[in-house]
């Protein structure tokens, strides 16, 4: 499906550096204030001071982790069902729906889930899961189908059962494609989770939104920089 794979991946030095910067930004507030004062000399209020940044990044990570794990588990199961003989008839229709899912903004799902789930992290989690199950599924399907037919046929011919073929041949060979899907999904989750602030789920979106609301670019940057760092770290580390 995705034909273009960029060259540079898994740069341990870069990941370490980014993580160090992120840790400093979150833990060493005076330093952050000094940087922001330098970049935004005009602003009197430099940081979001009603809660520490550790809380927001904690909430953010929790949303991404919980949403991601649920999506990986359900998406993998779903993808495997769709490539199995039982679920085979649904393959095309599921891929079509996955494509359709792209056109629904994640924040719209959050907004629509509020009446039944209330404000807070639950509508956001629902949106994150719905939004990321399908990309995981699509990549599981693409990964399993990318395994050469001759390999699976050889396994079958030597007497491997369906489960043995899946565990010993198809899953290991599909892993690179599946991992690409999971990485993309987690990056999307970091982004979508910033929007969760709209329905009161907390996260790094809170300082960003607060800064936007008060036309204070320093406060926006105070929340935006760690969000970007987080996404970059996930993208580079996986």
């Amino acid at each position: 499906m995705n034909a273009y794979v960029p060259g540079i991946r898994r740069n341990p030095l870069g990941v370490g550096l980014l993580t160090a910067v992120l840790a400093l930004w979150v833990l060493y507030t005076p330093g952050v204030e000094a940087v922001l004062r330098f970049v935004f000399p005009g602003e009197t209020r430099l940081i979001y001071d009603r809660s520490p940044l550790t809380r927001f990044i904690g909430e953010h990570l929790a949303l991404v982790a919980v949403g991601g794990v649920i999506a990986i588990v359900l998406g993998t199961i779903g993808g495997l069902i769709v490539v199995s003989p039982i679920g085979r008839p649904f393959r095309d229709v599921v891929l079509r729906l996955a494509n359709f899912g792209q056109s629904v903004p994640s924040v719209a799902i959050m907004a629509l889930a509020v009446p039944s789930l209330g404000y807070g992290s639950r509508p956001v989690l629902l949106a994150l899961v719905i939004y990321s199950i399908l990309p995981v599924m699509v990549n599981v399907v693409a990964g399993v189908e990318s395994v050469p037919r001759s390999v699976v046929e050889a396994g079958r011919g030597m007497g491997m059962t369906r489960a043995e073929r899946l565990i010993q041949l198809e899953m290991p060979l599909a892993m690179p494609v599946i991992m690409t899907g999971i990485r993309t999904m987690l990056v999307i989750l970091v982004s979508a989770a910033t929007l969760g602030a709209v329905v009161g789920a907390g996260g790094l979106g809170v300082p960003i939104m607060s800064g936007i609301g008060s036309f204070n670019n320093a406060v926006v940057a105070y929340g935006a920089v760690p969000a970007i760092l987080l996404a970059l770290i996930i993208d580079q580390a996986l």
């Binding site: 050469p148 001759s150 390999v151 046929e153 050889a154 396994g155 079958r156 011919g157 007497g159 060979l173």
Partner: peptide
């Protein structure tokens, strides 16, 4: 059962189908 049967019959094909991993 087919799996048991196949384990006792050698099978080689044109595309070989060696497991690349």
């Amino acid at each position: 059962p087919p799996e048991v049967l196949r384990r006792h019959i050698g099978y080689a094909i044109q595309s070989v189908g060696l497991f690349p991993h």
